[in-house]
Design a protein around this nucleic acid. Structure first.
Length: 638
RNA sequence: GCUCACAUAGCUCAGAUGGUAGAGCACAUCCUUGGUAAGGAUGAGGUCAUCGGUUCAAUUCCGAUUGUGAGCUCCA
């Protein structure tokens, strides 16, 4: 019998008969290990415990607690769920696919008769537990695609048939547990008994193969872990995320609202929210001026003809709002670039004048599909911190790097981690190869120099140029695009932007579209969740509330309020006829950074007694001392 | 836009097999002047999202619309 050499992670070598399985090897090490291992890694491939090893190689057993175990566990849990659904609803339901995802797994089902609802979860979970308890062996088998197609067709599993047909493989693998069989690459845990900790989360629609042209399937989201504690922690995280939800906090902190009669996706900013945004806008203007940008302002509507020249009418029409007055059509701007180019075109520009950096906090309107609207994160009217840098091709590199540094600075001030993506030339693209090459390498080198990891999305760029996207995460770990840098060769062409070069000839500049926080609305949504509503002092709409202990201090409190306001502190006095504890509680629930308590003692000494929103407090200090103290804190942020 | 679900007081939520509705918080008035997360009493508040249909009768059943949620697709 042929022998193969298996190298284990500790470097030891074992000679075993060819065709031995990871299970055999685990068993030879110890029964406990064999029982606890759910899969194995052979060379760089994940394999089943029952996979026959026919050649020499490195083998690592994956026990329940190994990092890779979770993916296998969840994938197997998806099968278990599909198994349960099939045995409960049988022929009414067809299975499709069910992968593991970051937070658990899902399985997509097709059914014309059965509509899944959360009320079904208990029954499905119960069935899953039953099937797990039977400890069914999960076995892999291979067969020719033709045989597999026949098998699934006989079962009425048309989606599986389609999958196999499209795979185009000669042989496919199937996994079987009891009377359930699924097309699958694997690997899987060896027995259903290993699947113990799972929970169904939600049900939602999803298109077959992700295309809106295809049938709508029913997706059941669920999660699975190797132990109950982790599941509990995961559910607790979801709870915490709910508490941080910017839609909930936005209402509780009285920042903004939406109104059914005003229209979906249109933000109504309340006094505190409007103050918060203007603080961020002030910050933005200051930071842009610091970095050599010029402030410009364009009109809210521009003639339809201009949108035809820009190509928006052709490519972006469905997302735009149009209006007509005096038989003249106008389009409400969905982007700010047009006016910026018109600023550029008012003069003849020399190569010495470049780059021109035009910055605008521009309010744009886009008719987003109704189903995508989501609090402040996805709205129909929003304000971009938008700039267009019109520069010579040889300046792209430096400009892109400066923008990246800008993004880094701002992310640092707010304490964000972020991830970046580079999107390259799509199939349908305009512009010369040399232009694309120059622009893409400029973006790439800026990314490389940033020292931060980034993903490359080949072919995902805009038709007019490549782009860098920066994504921030919300409380539920959903990623939202904020900053983006896009290279554009088209607009300068379409609008015939030129500059006079050193040679006296006209040349075509390049335009960089870029935003730093993206949309002020979205950014505030993310900020609310990031800080859980506890805004740092410098952007807190209300920085301090002065509370009196009894009516006796009312006059003094008003004086203190005036004094603080004079010093630029955003303050209000709470003189209501309520007990101190009541007012403290309310200020704390409003997440006010400082509560300044004033009783007879403070009044006599010309002091206030500061208390933080975390419940700790400082010794009483004079009003002047507090003003200095608060100013120091504000200054420390940026 | 698509699938499913939901819409009751400012907010969070009860409620009936079809006979026009409640709680807590918030709000108002009064009492209370109380030192760091809720003092007490009384009161006001709803065409049960909108429009249509079925019915003797609809907030409840059906349909459409609007809005919201989870997700898909798309995007800042």
């Amino acid at each position: 019998m042929a022998l193969v050499k298996i190298e284990l992670p500790d470097g030891s070598l074992r000679e075993v008969a060819a065709g031995s399985t990871p299970y055999d090897i685990a068993l030879s090490i110890g029964e406990g290990l064999a029982r606890q291992s759910i899969a194995a890694r052979f060379e760089d491939r994940l394999v089943d415990m029952s996979t026959a090893l026919e050649c020499s190689g490195r083998l690592a057993l994956i026990t329940q607690n190994a990092p890779e175990a979770l993916e296998v566990l969840r994938h197997s849990s998806a099968h278990l769920m599909a198994h349960a659904v099939k045995s409960l609803y049988g022929d009414d339901v067809q299975v499709t696919i069910g992968p593991s995802i970051d937070t658990g797994f899902y399985y997509d089902f097709f059914s014309e008769k059965k509509t899944f609802a959360p009320e079904d979860f208990e029954a499905i979970e119960k069935k899953m537990a039953e099937l797990a308890k039977q400890d069914l062996p999960i076995t892999r088998e291979e067969m020719s695609s033709a045989e597999a197609i026949e098998l699934f067709r006989a079962m009425g599993e048309n989606y599986k048939v389609e999958l196999i047909e499209d795979l185009g493989e000669t042989r496919v693998s199937l996994y079987r547990q009891g009377d359930f069989v699924d097309l699958c690459r694997g690997p899987h845990v060896p027995r259903t008994g290993l699947l113990k900790v799972y929970k169904l989360i939600s049900v939602a629609g999803a298109y077959w193969r992700g295309s809106e042209k295809n049938a709508m399937l029913q997706r059941i989201y669920a999660t699975a872990f190797s132990d109950k504690k982790q599941l509990k922690a995961h559910l607790a995280r979801l709870e915490e995320a709910k508490k941080r939800d910017h839609r909930k906090l936005g209402r509780e902190l009285d920042l903004f609202s939406f109104n059914e009669e005003a229209g979906a996706g249109l933000v109504i900013w309340h006094p505190k929210g409007a103050l918060l945004r203007s603080l961020i806008e002030d910050f933005e203007r200051k930071e842009h001026l610091k970095r050599g940008y010029d402030l410009v302002v364009g009109p809210q509507i521009l003639k339809t003809e201009l949108w035809k020249i820009s190509g928006h009418y052709e490519n972006y029409r469905e997302n735009m709002y149009f209006t007509e007055v005096d038989e003249q059509g106008y389009g409400i701007k969905p982007m700010n670039c047009l006016a910026h180019m018109l600023v550029y075109k008012t003069k003849i520009r020399s190569y010495r004048d470049l780059p021109q950096r035009y910055f605008e906090l521009g309010m744009v309107h886009r008719h987003e599909k109704s189903g995508v609207l989501h609090g402040l994160m996805r709205v129909r009217g929003f304000t971009q911190d938008d700039a267009h840098i019109i520069c010579r091709p040889d300046q792209i590199d430096a400009e892109v790097k400066a923008v990246m540094q800008f993004v880094r600075d701002v992310a640092g001030i707010f304490g964000f981690e972020y991830c970046m993506e580079l999107s390259t030339r799509p199939e349908k693209a305009i512009g010369s190869d040399a232009d694309w090459e120059a622009a893409t390498s400029a973006l790439r080198s800026a990314l490389d120099d940033s020292g931060q990891a980034y993903e490359v999305n080949e072919g995902d760029g805009a038709f007019y140029g490549p782009k860098i996207d920066v994504k921030l995460k919300d409380a539920l770990d959903r990623e939202w695009q904020c900053a983006t840098i896009q290279c554009d060769f088209t607009m300068p062409e379409r609008f015939d932007l030129t500059y006079v070069g050193a040679d006296g000839e006209k040349h075509r500049p390049v335009m960089l579209h870029r935003v730093i926080v993206g949309s002020i609305e979205r950014f505030i949504g993310i900020l609310i969740e990031h800080y859980a509503g506890n805004f740092p002092l410098w952007i807190s709409p209300v920085q301090a509330v002065v509370v009196n202990v009894t009516d006796k201090q009312a006059e003094y409190v008003k004086k203190v309020e005036a004094q603080l306001r004079e010093a630029g502190i955003r303050v209000h006095a709470d003189l209501r006829n309520e007990k101190l504890g009541f007012k403290i509680r309310e200020a704390q629930m409003n997440k006010t950074p400082y509560m300044l308590v004033v009783g007879d003692r403070e009044m006599e000494e010309g002091q206030v007694a500061p208390r933080f929103r975390d419940g700790t407090s400082l010794d009483p200090m004079t009003v002047e001392e507090f003003i200095r103290f608060a100013a120091e804190e504000v200054k420390s942020f940026h």
